[in-house]
């Protein structure tokens, strides 16, 4: 008789049980199964018969799953409010990462380019490995990579909790739209009395930005596609 635990895990996660609750349930069931096997062995059964008897005593996959699924308080927040996790969280995370990136841009502008009208553009005599160049390029990578990082986190949640593809796709579409339309502007002249002005506006952009948005979508989607292929291959095997 095969162990019901791997299938049970999948059923619990697909039913929306939070991974930590499913993990603890399975851990305790594993211990219980082990105790039952030892008990049945002490009654003189062979190892395989003892295992079969223990599996029969612990309950069927259906009954074990139903007992947990009947407790709605063990459902994850993602299962109860997927619209919040996959619809709102990407906005919040992306806004936070972009805010950090723009703060770093502002800091770099103040430290490395005091008096420059804009932090964008090349500095005369600047080397590739110049500290200033490295600083701004790393910050640029953070800004451009932020939608991908957020997309990966949404994919990770979807995979971990076995959510339907619809939800992470919603996140990725939102992130792609933001990536396709966002544009950072920094100019000291816009606010004459200020230290410099940085703003992000959103509008349809030329083709280059669309290529970036497409790259965001594909890179963010890559782990999910890989996982789906692996799951399919495991099921087929």
């Amino acid at each position: 008789m095969p162990s019901p635990l791997p299938e049970l895990r999948e059923r619990l996660l697909r039913a929306g049980i939070a991974p930590r609750h499913a993990r603890r349930y399975l851990a305790e069931l594993t211990d219980h199964l082990s105790d039952l096997t030892v008990e049945e062995r002490s009654h003189g059964l062979s190892p395989s018969d003892a295992r079969t008897a223990a599996l029969a005593r612990i309950g069927t996959t259906d009954s074990l799953a139903a007992a947990m699924i009947a407790q709605p308080q063990f459902q994850s927040f993602t299962a109860r409010a997927p619209w919040a996790v996959f619809g709102l969280t990407p906005f919040i995370l992306l806004a936070a990462l972009w805010f950090i990136s723009l703060c770093l841009l502002r800091l770099g502008w103040h430290l490395f380019l005091p008096g420059a009208i804009t932090p964008f553009g090349s500095v005369p005599g600047q080397q590739l490995l110049d500290l200033r160049n490295i600083y701004f390029q790393v910050n640029r990578a953070l800004y451009l990579g932020a939608p991908i990082l957020v997309g990966w986190s949404m994919i990770l949640i979807a995979i971990r909790q076995r959510r339907r593809a619809l939800w992470p796709m919603l996140s990725l579409i939102l992130l792609t739209l933001l990536a396709a339309t966002s544009h950072v502007q920094a100019n000291r002249l816009e606010v004459p009395t200020g230290l410099g002005h940085i703003r992000v506006d959103f509008a349809l952009r030329p083709a280059a930005q669309n290529e970036y948005a497409l790259a965001v979508l594909l890179l963010a989607l890559l782990p999910y596609i890989t996982w789906r292929f692996r799951s399919h291959a495991e099921l087929s095997a």
Partner: peptide, 11 residues
């Protein structure tokens, strides 16, 4: 089914 005691305990 002995395993179903755990959801009760967790609850």
């Amino acid at each position: 089914g002995e395993g179903v005691v755990y959801p009760v305990l967790h609850n």
